[in-house]
Amino acid sequence: MPRPNPATYGTSVTKPADFDDFWANVEAQAARMPLNATLTPVPMRSTPAVEVFEVHYDSLDGVRIAGWYCLPRQRRQPLPAIVVYPGYISEPTLPKNLAAQGYAAFGAAPRGKLRSNGQFNPGYPGLLIHNILDSNTYGYRGFYVDAWRVIDFLSEQPEVNVNRIGVTGGSQGGALTLLAAAMRPQIAAAAAAAPYLAGMMDAAQLTHTTPYAEIVEYLRLYPEREPQVRETLAYFDCINFAGRIRCPIIVNIGLQDDVCPPETGYAVFEAIGSRDKKLYAYDGYGHDANAYAHGAVIDAFFREHLQNA
């Protein structure tokens, strides 16, 4: 039987009535905690063209977060900046290539990633269902804050043009791209690939592939907990954040994506609040979302919005 058109699938995600209050409270908690950022040069990873620093900063619940920060040695200040968010299992990017193109480039490592896992380490698999019955302690609560506090860090750096900050990433990195764009309105441009953490309960119906398999497996063992799981995830679903996004944004998805089903990609794109938004839906591609060719589209998009604007 042919698959139904993923573009018309829709979503079962609903927005909790206190969604905005929930996140305002989280933000207020985080705001009481200064970043206390430190930058440590990493000569071994630096090159004649690019300086590399290891960054640490404080985040929600007092968790110390790491990241890679790369700067072009020859720079016209202030610099446009790009944050690269990591996938679920991938290691944080060390974005020397972006620094070589003239950006202040940050490779984020939210809690649980290597170098940010001393105080929080649910593991892989594990993160997606960590404390999934309680929105106030769910693993992604602090993880999300870690991701968008990168923007706060960049905003403190004298070499960064705070009006030209871009965000990008694929899969979980695509989700964090959407979330940062929603929660930090100073972001000037966003490019999200194959976004994860969108339409999560729908995805668990559509695929058996990890990471969503973690939800499938959890509910197979504990089917009676489905309402609570759905309730928690509603606070964390990108679809419920997407209406806040106002910056220019591009999203690419693969129509044969078995990891983040295209139905969910369409749904979150539909919810994005930006007027300037464009979807690239690639037939014949899976979770890679045609990254091989689409990279050039992203490069041109950031050149237009961060360098030539």
Partner: peptide, 8 residues
């Protein structure tokens, strides 16, 4: 094919 689908 530079496609996780087609290569898969």
């Amino acid at each position: 094919a530079h496609s996780s689908y087609r290569d898969g």
